[in-house]
Design a protein around this nucleic acid. Sequence first.
DNA 1: ATTGCAAGTTTTATCGAATATATTCATAAC
DNA 2: GTTATGAATATATTCGATAAAACTTGCAAT
Lengths: 234, 234
Amino acid sequence: MNKGVTEPEAMESGTRTSTQASTVYDRLQDDILTGQLKPGRKLRLKDLIEEYNTGNSPLREALNRLSANGMVVREENSGFRVSPANTEELMELTRTRCWLEEIALRESIAHGDVAWEERIVLAFHWLNREAQSKVDNVKHTSSEWEDHHAEFHETLISACNSNILIDFCAQLAKRTLRYRNLVEVMEYRYRHEMEEHRDLQQAVLDRNADLAVELLTKHYTVTSEIVLTSGRFD
Amino acid sequence: MNKGVTEPEAMESGTRTSTQASTVYDRLQDDILTGQLKPGRKLRLKDLIEEYNTGNSPLREALNRLSANGMVVREENSGFRVSPANTEELMELTRTRCWLEEIALRESIAHGDVAWEERIVLAFHWLNREAQSKVDNVKHTSSEWEDHHAEFHETLISACNSNILIDFCAQLAKRTLRYRNLVEVMEYRYRHEMEEHRDLQQAVLDRNADLAVELLTKHYTVTSEIVLTSGRFD
DNA sequence: ATTGCAAGTTTTATCGAATATATTCATAAC
DNA sequence: GTTATGAATATATTCGATAAAACTTGCAAT
C-alpha cells in the first residue's frame, strides 16, 4: 500500500520477526494436532485463505512444509488434505515410538549428566503441578497439560546424544498426540498417569535402564490401547 | 492460452502429470545429494529461478519441502541455504543410522517372508552386477551404482513392519550419501564392499540376526570413518 | 580506526491475476 | 440403466508485480 512509510500499524498479533508462512504453519499444525481439522479432511485453498486470513503463497508454503512432515498429504494437482487416521497407523506409530524411545532413553541414562537429572526433576514437577490443578478442578486448558507432558518425555531422552533421534521422536509424539485428541472422552487420562510418570522418573533417576524402558514402553502401549478402544477412526 | 485444445507445445521436458514444484524439488534434492550444491551455500532465489528455469512459487514450495527434511535450512526472512555439513553431523548421522537400522534389520529377519528373501537376492544380484561392470571399466554413472546400493539396503530392512521407520532410515541414508559424495576421491569405494555386501546378505538369509547386525553396523561405521579421514568439511 | 546512522541496493516474502488441471454436470449413444 | 463425451465450473498451480525486510555503502561524529 504505502512504500516509503513502513507504518508499523496494528499487526494482527505481535508477530514481529516471524514470517507469515511460519505463523500459518504453526496454526495449521496446531489445528491438526488438536483435532480441529479432522483426519482426511480436504484442505481447500480458498477456505483456508479465509479461515486463516492469509494469502495464497504463504499458505501453500506452510502446507508444503506440513506435507514433508506427514501431517498433511499432497495430491499432485489436486491440493492437500489432512493425513488420514486409521487404527493401523496408530499401532505402527506406537510400535515405532517404543523402539526409538527405548534407544534414546537407554543412551540418555547411560550418558546423562547432573544437569539432565535436574531438568527431569523440574519437568516432572511442572507436570505434576499441572495434573494437581486438574484434579482440583482449576480451570486449565488441556493444551497446557499436554505441553508439560510433552516436555517431560522430551527431557527424559534429551541426553541421548543425537538431535536427529530426538527430532524423530518428537515427530512420532506429535502424530500420536493427534490420535489422543481424536477421542472425545477424556476419561482415559484420569488413570494412573501420575503414578506412571512418578515411577518412570524414579527409575530413570536411579539409572535403572531396564525398568525405565519397561515402564516407558508400557506407558505408551497402554495409552495406545485405550485410545484404540475408545475411538473409531477409519 | 487455449483451453480445449491443450497444445502440447515445446514443454521443456515431458513433465506430464507431475507438478513443477515437484520436479524442481527432485532436481534440487539431487543436486544437493550429489554435491553439485555445496553444503552451506546460499540459495538465492533469483539464481535458482534462472538455473532451474522455473518460477518463484514452485521454487519456494520445493525449498520449503526440503527445509522440512533437513536438506535445506530456512532462515526466517533471509531465504534458504544448503544445510551445512560438518564432522559432528556425519558422526551423529552414522550413530543414529546404526541404531535405527539395527532395529529394522532384526525385525525384518524375524518377520520377513519368502518374497522378502527373493527381493534381497535380486537386489544383491543387481548391485553385484553393477559393481562388476565398474571393475571392468564399463562406462557407468556413479549414480546407477548408488541407486542399486540404496535399493539393496532398503530391501534388507523392508520387512520390519513399520513404514515410518523405513522412511526415517531413508532420510538418514540420503543425508549420509551426501557426505560420501563430498569426498572427491572415489578410492574409498574400492575396498571390500562387494565382500561386505555378500557376507551381509548371507547372514540375513541365514537369519543370523546378531551377525547381520554386526556386519551392517561395521559396514556403516567403516564407511563413515573413511569419509571422515578423506574429506574436510566444516 | 570505530561506531552510528541513513539513504540506496539487493533479496525475500507476499499479493492479485492468469493459466492449467481436475471435477461436475448434462446430454447422447448404446 | 450404463457408459461415453464435452462443455461448464471449481480448484490448484504458476506467473509477474509489489511490498517488506535485510544487507550494503558512504559519510559523519567520536
